[in-house]
Design a protein around this nucleic acid. Structure first.
Length: 498
RNA sequence: GGGUCGUUAGCUCAGUCGGUAGAGCACCGCACUUUUAAUGCGAUGGUCGCGCGUUCGAAUCGCGCACGACCCA
């Protein structure tokens, strides 16, 4: 006996013994079983049939699934099996099966085992559509028991670390990830219909760019150089627009070396898309259409409930500049209070915000916004006209050179999207990168690098373009009423198990 | 980084004032051919998160650590 077998719990040991016996008499893990239908398909098609109709015209089915419950009553049993669509009840009686199968096989199987069964549909005394089984096989022996059937898994840690158990046990959790898949598929279709081309750009960057964030560092052995996991695909996608792919998008992972929280995971999924010959207000329209479409087509309603709030996706979303939003939510402030660096710094000081000497007016305005406005943005809201200082890749506004043609989108006090007219002036971009390098040298770890190759691309000519990024995880949280980003990530990052 | 709560059987949870570790589900045995949290009877199963301390004696009290959840920055 090995070390593990000695310490193994009794229940696992018993199952392992059954597997050993199984190996001796047959192929323990057969692969030749084929099913011809699924639990939910059967329920959808025959639920409405009466007991008599099912008896008059017997319907044969072959199903595979995991045994979730078992009620053994001597020579007959009921059990529910679960496949990817849901559960259906099997009626397994000794006299309906080939000689010996019931006593020598079926009764020795356990909850969690995976079986293949065939038989005819019937209605039980209380009217549950079930399968009267006349042939059943064990397909996969499960060596470990399932969590308690009634309460399921209460420990969040187990739900995250052993997601497969959560998926087996929780219909709600399966629903969330089904919805996630549908949302992403919807977005793909939505963009492809509008002539966007889906592309894949590098995950490993020599210069991390496209966002303000600390990157993960990795190392390429052959080239003997450090590389960075991407923090955003932006600069590559815009290179593609230079190349003539005038509408592109990518849905994929970004990596940011930051803390973990209910809203942050080190790797998260971002949609970025770029449309030449468009401006940012058109992307706001497109974003509204997309979100309204997800609500209508996938949720079946424009009224979205998230935690304690209800959102109406029917109405047009509010659009307000960051400057005006500060005044709106700080009635004691006037335009003068946030129009000069000196006055704004005074306001920030009263709010006890940490303001560094290197911060200009724009950065201070954004700090005030983050502290006093962001959490108020419960209803879907576009905040526009972000300062140039915090928007190193966005095009300067023609009328007000202090701000950019940019917006961010908020729901429930959370940032969901960020879009702007792309800065396609290579000389302006070079100056902005230079400014970022100065910030980095001054100690700002999140400041951008100077990407000379990207400047060369811009020098070849980026057509007038608007682009946007949407945080998919946060979007899925919204549409699945999930309080934590971990609830919408199949395998969220946790601290290593002790 | 700070605060609050939690960690006891495979799972869900009790555990009184510090005095031999409890229940339900699961599992095992017996009975049971329309059950569905099946039922009835019986049995098995424990490094009480880890470490140190207080004490005649610690799941219980104290300190530290680990992990998790929530809130705050």
């Amino acid at each position: 006996m090995t070390e593990t077998q000695v310490t193994e719990q009794e229940q696992i040991r018993q199952r392992r013994e059954k597997l050993t016996a199984l190996r001796e008499e047959t192929i323990a893990f057969p692969t030749d079983f084929r099913r011809d239908t699924l639990a939910a398909e059967i329920l959808a098609a025959y639920e409405s049939k009466t007991k008599e109709e099912l008896e008059a015209e017997p319907i044969r089915v072959k199903l595979g699934g995991r045994v979730m419950t078992r009620r053994i009553m001597g020579k007959a049993s009921f059990c529910h099996i679960q496949d990817m669509t849901g559960q259906i009840q099997l009626y397994v009686a000794r006299d309906n099966l080939p000689e010996g199968v019931y006593n020598d096989q079926f009764k020795k199987w356990d909850i969690a085992d995976i079986v293949g069964a065939e038989g005819v549909l019937f209605k039980t005394q209380v009217g549950e559509l079930s399968v009267k089984v006349d042939n059943i096989r064990l397909l996969t022996k499960a060596l470990r028991p399932l969590p308690e059937k009634f309460h399921g898994i209460a420990d969040q840690e187990i739900k995250y670390r052993q997601r497969y158990l959560d998926l087996i046990m929780s219909q709600e959790s399966r629903q969330t990830f089904l919805m996630r898949s549908k949302i992403i598929a919807y977005i793909r279709q939505f963009l492809i219909e509008r002539q966007f081309l889906e592309v894949e750009t590098p995950m490993m960057h020599v210069i991390p760019g496209g966002a303000s964030a600390r990157p993960f560092i990795t190392h390429h052995n052959t080239l003997d150089m450090d590389m960075y996991l991407r923090i955003a695909p932006e600069l590559y996608l815009k290179r593609l627009v230079v190349g003539g792919f005038e509408r592109v998008f990518e849905v994929n992972r970004n990596f940011r070396n930051e803390g973990l929280s209910t809203r942050h995971n080190p790797e998260f999924t971002m949609l970025e898309f770029y449309q030449a010959y468009a401006e940012y207000d058109e992307l706001m329209d497109l974003t509204e259409d997309m979100l309204r479409g997800i609500a209508t087509d996938l949720c079946g309603t424009t009224t979205i409930v998230y935690q304690e709030h209800t959102y109406d996706f029917e109405k047009p979303f509010e659009r307000i500049s960051i400057f005006d939003s500060i005044l709106k939510y700080n009635p004691d402030l006037t335009a003068e209070n946030i129009s000069t660096r000196e006055a704004a710094a005074e306001v920030a000081k009263k709010l006890r915000l940490p303001i560094k000497d290197s911060y200009g007016l724009g950065k201070i305005q954004v700090e005030i916004f983050d502290a006093t406005v962001e959490h108020h943005l419960i209803n879907p809201t576009f905040i526009t006209a972000y300062p140039v200082e915090v928007s190193p890749l966005a095009r300067r506004n023609d009328k007000d050179p202090h701000v950019t043609d940019r917006f961010e989108f908020f729901i429930g006090g959370r940032e969901i999207a960020n879009g702007f007219n792309e800065l396609n002036d290579p000389e302006d971009q070079a100056e902005r990168f230079q400014r970022q390098v100065e910030d980095k040298e001054a100690g700002d770890h999140e400041a951008m690098h100077y990407d000379a190759d990207y400047i060369v691309a811009l020098e070849h000519g980026l057509p007038p373009t608007a682009g946007e990024g949407i945080g998919i995880d946060r979007l899925v949280m919204l549409f699945t009423n999930s309080p934590s980003i971990r609830d919408v990530l199949l395998f969220p990052h946790l601290r290593p198990k002790a």
